[in-house]
Nucleic acid binder design. Structure first.
Lengths: 201, 201
DNA sequence: TCGCCTGTCTAGCACTGCTAGGATCAGCGC
DNA sequence: GCGCTGATCCTAGCAGTGCTAGACAGGCGA
């Protein structure tokens, strides 16, 4: 029995090694550099071993993405927790989200740009993914306004996603990132209390 | 001389055939199905002929994208022209943009998601691309508010881009597309004149 | 008519994801 | 301790990818 346990341990360890190696290569050289041969070489096993752990390359990318969902959820949770009021919480979450996308473009790509083969918003959605989304819902709720919370959440998320992807693709002026977020959030929440209405009709 | 002219004509025709074929395959089966061999088979020439027209596959995708920029620019221009006031113009442009992305996901992907190798917002930016962007600037100007026009343009574009990409990736509820656009544009422009302020602080 | 030159194709390179089949070695019963 | 058994792993190969060198033909000018 102990032998099988050891084997299972080793197997789990190798599993994590594969995911970590894939992530490392992707983050330093992009997903194009992540090939099955390269992975096999780096973990010092032959290629078929990888297929004993994952049904295919796509599944490895998926594993990296799910791990990253956990991290993003943790970051946004921390950002939200440290905020004084709903407006600050929203801003903190947005900043954390964009900072994550900017710091880990390859992870962000695996999570939200590449086709994941993971259902979003259904019962089969993995837990890390759902809890990360729940973070956004939580912070949006006070600002839902006329529309329902889920719609408002989708709008906030879409805005952040657009800013993140166009930003990393270098299609927005890099220096104006903070201004863009200001403008977007001001629109989303409405102007701060006490200040005059913004744009004319 | 006439012979050379005929050859040049034939060459240009084949050039267009390549771009059109690439586009057709991409739109019906996705970019993964667009391979050099497949293209060669469909245009009934061998693969090296393609490399006589384009330096590589990426350049073919780029040609398809630039053509698509022209179309998108035309669509948004028409949408804007038919609008009564600035608010309607903004909405019409946004709807046209999202409709294009939904109707031609492969083209949209080539234009805005895949790395294009085309500089955005510099002097070398191709004309179709610049004029399409100018459309957005035009329609955003009345709603710039406190921030400068270019920043506001980037924010609008980012929002639309996020809605478009997450939409085609099936990560937003399909039925709520109109509600999302409403919510986003209301935030972006501020509430319509005469109506009470939206969300509470 | 001859020779060149342009245009095209065949065949091949190095790479990709993935897999069939054989070798190897650990653990077990005797 | 010995030989069997079964799991584990690797070698080698498949079909596909983007791309290219070199051979071949056909039309052009002299």
């Amino acid at each position: 029995m102990a032998i099988e346990e050891r084997r299972e341990r080793e197997r789990a360890q190798r599993h994590r090694l594969i995911v970590r190696t894939a992530r490392d290569i992707a983050e330093s050289e992009g997903w194009d550099a992540v090939t099955v041969r390269r992975l096999a070489r780096e973990i010092e096993y032959s290629q078929p071993v990888l297929y004993g752990h994952f049904p295919g390359k796509e599944a490895i990318v998926r594993a990296v993405a799910i791990e990253a969902f956990d991290e993003l959820g943790e970051l946004t949770r921390a950002a939200r927790a440290g905020a004084a009021d709903p407006r600050a919480a929203l801003r903190a979450l947005a900043e954390a989200y964009l900072a994550f996308a900017a710091a880990h473009p390859a992870l962000y790509e695996a999570m939200f740009v590449r086709p994941l083969g993971i259902p979003f918003g259904t019962a089969e959605t993995p837990a890390p993914l759902r809890s990360a989304f729940a973070e956004i819902v939580e912070v949006v709720t006070p600002f839902a306004g006329g529309t329902d919370t889920e719609t408002a959440t989708e709008v906030l998320w879409s805005g952040l996603h657009g800013l993140a992807t166009l930003g990393t693709a270098r299609r927005l002026r890099p220096d104006q990132a903070a201004d863009r977020l200001d403008r977007f959030l001001t629109g989303f929440t409405g102007p701060p209390t006490g200040s005059p209405a913004g744009p004319p009709a």
